[in-house]
Design a protein around this nucleic acid. Structure first.
Length: 272
DNA sequence: GAAGACCTGCTA
DNA sequence: TAGCAGGTCTTC
């Protein structure tokens, strides 16, 4: 569920809520496999007494920088979220100084909290974050031309660019007018330029709208205060199968590319 | 590459 | 009841 804009929204809210600077008084782990290293007792023992110096985001990872010099790396995967009040499907609870309590909620239990000495053990597997200067046209062109893969799965590959997920990949391709099954090394200079800009653009707009929420269920994206993201109304491609393209009016189609559901306009996004 | 695994809940 | 879901891993 959460892609870069949703994770960025959560990180900003955690900062605003005043999590930075708090000491971890206690940790409840309600679903053991959420944490690493195991066993749970060790994870808890290592964490208690440490202080959260800073909260950052890299790709879809939330990074808690601790004063001990260690790092708590959190990946929300499909349904992870934070809340300031308890609820069903809470998997971990952080009791912080000043009576603050943070609840980590994760219906599908895919999310992971990794306590590591060095963040590079996690981040080395990632390409540049999509919103940093390292993700630029020169880099993008080199990677696209250096591989012969369908463009859609390549955009989802976090070792190529960190932060895009299924929604924003479809949105970027729609905005750039590029068919999701195009080969990466077949894109013209102008198409690469447009797509590179579209990627950054759709992510920025997503952040501005505080993320995207689709369905209504418990697996749906919610921010720290339990609110849905506001980006839903501005989605152009994802989940709009059969609805008219906002550019040309032709009905959008859904296909499977790289085992992932993919939405596009057959008129605006030509295969050739 | 593809398929299965990890999980629960919603929708048709 | 079957199929689907915003993500990654592992194992063919």
């Amino acid at each position: 569920m959460p892609e870069l804009p949703e994770v960025e929204t959560i990180v900003r809210q955690l900062r605003e809520y005043g999590v930075e600077g708090r000491t971890i008084r206690s940790v409840d782990v309600l679903w053991a496999r959420t944490v690493e290293p195991l066993p749970v007792d060790r994870f808890r023992r290592e964490l208690v007494g440490d202080t959260i110096l800073r909260i950052d985001r890299v790709g879809k990872w939330v990074m808690l920088v601790l004063t001990s010099g260690r790092f708590l790396m959190i990946h929300l995967r499909m349904s992870g979220s934070f809340s300031t009040s308890p609820g069903s499907h809470d998997r971990l609870v952080l009791f912080l100084s000043g009576e603050m309590v943070l609840y980590y909620r994760d219906t599908r239990k895919f999310g992971r909290w990794k306590l590591v000495e060095d963040p590079s053990t996690v981040l080395d597997a990632l390409g540049p974050d999509a919103l940093t200067r390292d993700f630029n046209l020169r880099y993008f062109t080199a990677v696209m031309r250096g591989k012969h893969r369908r463009i859609k799965p390549l955009l989802l590959d976090q070792s190529v660019v960190a932060g895009l997920g299924n929604i924003y990949a479809d949105e970027a391709l729609w905005e750039a007018g590029i068919h999701p099954e195009r080969w990466s090394d077949s894109l013209e200079d102008g198409e690469l330029r447009t797509l590179c800009a579209a990627i950054r653009h759709v992510l920025r707009i997503g952040i501005r709208n505080r993320g995207t929420s689709l369905g209504k269920g418990r697996t749906n994206y919610r921010d720290l205060k339990g609110r849905s993201g506001g980006h839903r109304a501005e989605v152009n491609a994802y989940g709009r199968t059969g609805e008219p393209c906002k550019r040309c009016g032709v009905a959008l189609e859904r296909i499977i590319v790289g085992q992932r559901s993919t939405h596009f306009c057959p008129h605006c996004q030509k295969k050739t």
